[in-house]
Structures are given as structure tokens and as C-alpha cells.
Nucleic acid binder design. Structure first.
Lengths: 235, 235
DNA sequence: TCAAAAGTGTTCGGACTACACCCATGA
DNA sequence: TCATGGGTGTAGTCCGAACACTTTTGA
């Protein structure tokens, strides 16, 4: 069959907003763009969608290129297609949010890209409309995390409840009552207590937990309410 | 500046999932496709994104073409870009959800397209991946409507609380307690009571209400809970 | 022994549900 | 006058927020 006549074609790209958690703050993985225009300015990791590839596949590939990681949490965020967004030629970009365990990230793999983890609050200005992408991803993450257990994707296999709480606190930039928080979290039955304690952050030590993977997957869409009064944060 | 070398280009389209409410059921506006391939099969309304147009603009244009309506609620849903989704040539489609007041819709405008409002439960099979689009839009509408007052977009300027309740009931395919429902809705202060009553649906008659537009816009992102136990429906 | 973080117990208030009951009206 | 749907009142329950208090341990 023939092609559709008279229609203009565009370039199709993906960009990944990659979040990590360093134990204290949320961070964003950025690269120094390696080609023109805007060469060596800070940018999201991205790439063009290849001929036999879905945008999703492309995002997975690009993420692996940069981090060496597979099996990462990845979700389509939004498509950005304003005519002037890339000055070179019309390029439509499908943006994806990725949440990775920063500890699994191996720096050497991405040295080619001069990648760096930035504090969200101290990120540099990015090329094109990438700042908007990050802004939207932040909002959407806040929204989603208020109801669904996505943030576990940012933690290592074993973690303590206070660590989880720091993560939430850094996302919502506020402090929660630790007593209520731990009870809420544990009452979901999502966590399996380990024998060891983390003694780094306190004298008493906090028990490590692992995710109950089965329950986690089953409950992934279920509602939690680790965040009190989400109204305050999501607006 | 030159173009990016060596990159394949694709066609960019938009498709609109258009919902309406007939007073009893949710309906979906479909057209008979007017060109090949799949000519005269049922399809979502869509079109190609033009050269100086954003996908959003294209969706607005396409919607106006079909319904004659402007100022309609429109939201980007998801981008579908699997390589084989359109057999003619690679086409990436950005899907939009539209919610329109079915009463403002003027049939004659869209006669060219042989458009029809289908019951969601009785919709025909659609071309390409349009069935997936509809499925996703339905899920997302259920999700969103459980927390945010989007469904008002489907109602006429004046409506009764029982009408609103029917709308929710048809979205969630269940029955709510009318006594609790009306109290919840009214307690938001979003509705302004009118003098007249709707006497069609009952002998006693139910008061008409109008949206308090100011509050509506302010509260649009706020959380409501018209839907008891949303967990049951959103999964 | 004391400071500091982890974690348990208890109370209080608000929100949500369920349901009895009253209202208005046309047939 | 009665059937029908609209709407208010109210009691019971549950859940989350607040916070006093205990536990553990390194310095």
C-alpha cells in the first residue's frame, strides 16, 4: 500500500527524566550534550526512535546506554511537540520518567556522556524544553507517590523505615511524624523485616526491611496514604 | 542550521477519544473513516499534525472540525507509536481525551464523517490500535474522576444532583447511596442552587444547580471523594 | 548517665456509611 | 391516597493525627 500523500514527516525522539535518591535528597541524572546544537550544555538523556522500535523500546535502550541498567521502572510522561522546540528541525519528543536505585548505577558506563547526578533544587538550566519536562515529571511523581508505592523503586533491596521516610520527606519537602509514618508503612504488610539493623544513622539502630515482591506487584495500583493530606502537596 | 543526519522521519497524528453523557449512559463519538486503508470502518476522530501546529493545536482543530465546538475539555492521554500500528507507513499518534456536553454537539456539522455516539459497552471494533486507546481513556477517566471534578464537563450548564449521580454511576457501573451522594456534592460548595426544578424525572422534582465557575477552576486539582472506596474501581 | 533516634500505646476528632425518616407531587 | 424519587437527620464506626512515653545503645 502507498504512503499517505502530502503529509509532512517529523523526527521522533525520547527523553528520560531519571530520578535517584542518595539517602538524603532526590537527584536527577543529566548529561552534557555531545553534539550540536547546544553542544556541551546540560540536557536530559535522550535519543531518536529507530525504525523498528517503539518509543518505549527507545527509552529502555537509551536508559541502558547511559546507566547500564535494565529492568528499570519507566513510565511515559507526556509528549512534547511544539513546532519550535528543537531549532534544527521539527522533532517530537516522548518524555519518560525513570526511577532507579542510585546504588546500582555504575558511573564508568556513562563517562562518555559526562553524566552527573544533580540535586533537583540545584539543577542547571537545560536545553530546549527539558526544564518543562523535569517540572512536569516532578509534579507527576509527587502526585503518583502520594497514592501508589512507586518510591520503593528508588531504594536499594534492603532499607529501613526511617530511610523510606527521608525519601518521602525529600519528595514533599516537609517532615512527617516518624511514629505514625512507620506504623502506616508497616501496616500495609508490604515489608518483610530482616534480622539486621542499620546502625549508621542511629545508636539504637533501625531494622532493615525488604519488599515483599509479590504483594508489591499486586498492590502497585492500590492506594496507600503514606502522605498525610496530599491535597497540600499535589496542587 | 542543518538537519540531523541519518534519522528516519515519521508521520505525526492525533486521535481524540470523545466522551459524552446522554443523561443515562456514557457515550463515545466515533466516525466512519473516509479514506484508505480501512475506509468506512469505525474509527476515532483524528488527523495529521500540520507543520506549524503543536499536537495540542491539532487535537483542538480536529475536535472543532467534527463537533463544531471550541473551549472543550481536552487532555493528552498517551502517545502510541508501535512501529506496525498503521500498516501504510509509520505513524505516531498522540491520543487526547475530550469531554463534551453532548447537548452542545450539533449533528449536522459532522455529517461528512458519518459520526455516531455509541454506548461504550456497545462500541464496534475500531481500526488500528484505537480500541486500546479507548480502553486506556476509560481507565484514566475512572481514575481521574474519582478524585477530581472532571465529570462536570460532561453536563449541561444546569443540572440536578441526581443527574450528576447517574453520571458517576454510569462511569463506575454501580449504584451509590443518593442521600450521602447529594450531601457530599453539596458540601463542596461548588454548586449554586437555582430556583427551578427538573420535573421530568420525578414528581417532587430536583433542584437545578450551576457550577460556581470560580470555585470550580480553583478546586479543579483539589481532591474530592464523590466515589466511595475508589480502590474498588481504579484497579 | 545522657542524648538521640526508633518505635509502641493511647486518645481525640472528623469523615464516611448506613439507614430511618420526612417532603413534594402527579397520577 | 399512595407510589416515587428527592432530600435531611442521626448514630455508629473507622481511620488518621497528635503526642506522651518506652526502648536501645554509643559516647
Amino acid at each position: 500500500m502507498n504512503r499517505y500523500p502530502l503529509q509532512r514527516h517529523v523526527l521522533l525522539a525520547v527523553d528520560c527524566i531519571i530520578f535517584g535518591f542518595d539517602g538524603h535528597d532526590i537527584r536527577l541524572l543529566l548529561i552534557k550534550r555531545g553534539f550540536r546544537p547546544e553542544k556541551s550544555k546540560w540536557s536530559l538523556m535522550g535519543g531518536f526512535v529507530q525504525q523498528r522500535e517503539s518509543p518505549e523500546d527507545a527509552a529502555v535502550r537509551v536508559l541502558k546506554q547511559l546507566t547500564g541498567l535494565g529492568g528499570v521502572y519507566l513510565e511515559q510522561l507526556h509528549t512534547f511537540g511544539n513546532p519550535g522546540r528543537d531549532p534544527v528541525e521539527r522533532t517530537v519528543s516522548v518524555a519518560y520518567t525513570a526511577l532507579i536505585d542510585i546504588h546500582r548505577y555504575e558511573k564508568q558506563i556513562s563517562d562518555d556522556y559526562h553524566a552527573e547526578w544533580f540535586l533537583l533544587s540545584k539543577k542547571p538550566k537545560l536545553i530546549f524544553d527539558h526544564d518543562n519536562m523535569v517540572e512536569l515529571a516532578k509534579k507527576q511523581l509527587r502526585y503518583k507517590a502520594a497514592f501508589h508505592p512507586v518510591l520503593f523503586e528508588l531504594l536499594p533491596e534492603k532499607f529501613t523505615v526511617p530511610q523510606l521516610q527521608s525519601l518521602y520527606e525529600s519528595i514533599y519537602d516537609t517532615a512527617f511524624d516518624n511514629r505514625n509514618f512507620s506504623r502506616k508503612v508497616l501496616s500495609t504488610g508490604l515489608l518483610i523485616k530482616q534480622k539486621q539493623k542499620d546502625k549508621v544513622n542511629s545508636k539504637k539502630g533501625a531494622f532493615y526491611y525488604k519488599l515483599d515482591e509479590k504483594k508489591y506487584k499486586a498492590d502497585f495500583k492500590a492506594f496507600l496514604n503514606f502522605v498525610p493530606n496530599p491535597d497540600r502537596f499535589v496542587l
